[in-house]
Design a protein around this nucleic acid. Structure first.
Ligand SMILES: [Mn+2]
Ligand SMILES: [Mn+2]
Ligand SMILES: [Zn+2]
Ligand SMILES: [Zn+2]
Lengths: 136, 136
DNA sequence: CTTTTACTGCAACTCGATTGCAAAGATTAC
DNA sequence: GTAATCTTTGCAATCGAGTTGCAGTAAAAG
């Protein structure tokens, strides 16, 4: 696992106090985090600073965002080597019972055969159901 | 193509003036519509009435909703025979140039192999890129 | 016809997201 | 070094999609 400093250096994002704690928090969580999740976890950091940090991270492919239908955008750290292009696509799983959203890096995504002349750029693939913990 | 009245009858949703015009509008559009799209198209129908109509339609599987990441939930009429369960899953395509979102009923969705003990209930699969019209 | 239930329109409100602005901090120019 | 410049941060205000309470109207039941 890389440290926050290493990741920011690789992605050419200047390191600051806020950026470090936001990235550290994201790295420490197994489930994708909303702005509010982060705000609650980092009690003394302003929401708009976190918000702008997340935008910066997303632009520079430090993290990616997930629209899981809960009404709050979630964020997760990109896998090592991820460039956020179609080859890095993966499913996200949203548990309808415990509200956790996470990246399914290990489930292969089949090649999507788009109609003639369509161009694939990105995708937001959210699979919903019960996670192993809730399906008992 | 079925008429609004036929669809509502099959789905056991009582027909009203608002419901008819909302469903007629959805049927007339090739792209999925947001609440605002519908509000703009139906100048004399109140937003909250349209909103509640959409909720009723969704509960009764007349339509399904799509979170395409644009910030506004989009709605599209279900295909004939659709029960909105996993077997009726299909991709949605969001064109990043013209902002249209539509159902890709003809692109098969491969079986998703979830991790051990996960249960699939639903999914929101949005593929983003350029539509044939914009990819020139 | 009367009672009950469902639908509609309007206004108010919620809440996640976003922005303007000034202060603080970091970087570059001299 | 200091001054000028650019970037980041915190705070408050704002935006806008979504949602709700409520009273009036329409439809269904008795
Ligand atoms: Mn992910
Ligand atoms: Mn669809
Ligand atoms: Zn769960
Ligand atoms: Zn297009």
């Amino acid at each position: 696992m890389q440290t926050e400093e290493e990741i920011l250096k690789i992605k050419k994002v200047k390191n600051t106090a806020v950026r470090t704690v936001v990235l550290r928090h994201l790295l420490s969580q197994e489930k994708a985090q909303s702005l509010k999740d982060i705000e609650n976890a980092l009690a003394y950091t302003d929401r708009s600073s976190i918000f702008r940090t997340l935008k910066t991270f997303e632009e520079n492919k430090v993290i990616h965002s997930i629209e899981d239908g809960s009404g709050m955008t979630k964020y997760a750290v990109c896998a090592k080597g991820c460039n956020c292009d179609p080859k890095d696509l993966h499913y996200h799983f949203y548990c309808t019972n415990c509200d956790k959203t996470f990246c399914l890096f290990d489930v292969p995504i089949p090649k999507i055969q788009l109609p003639e002349n369509f161009k694939l750029q990105q995708a937001n693939m959210v699979v919903k159901g019960l996670c192993d913990n809730c399906n008992k």
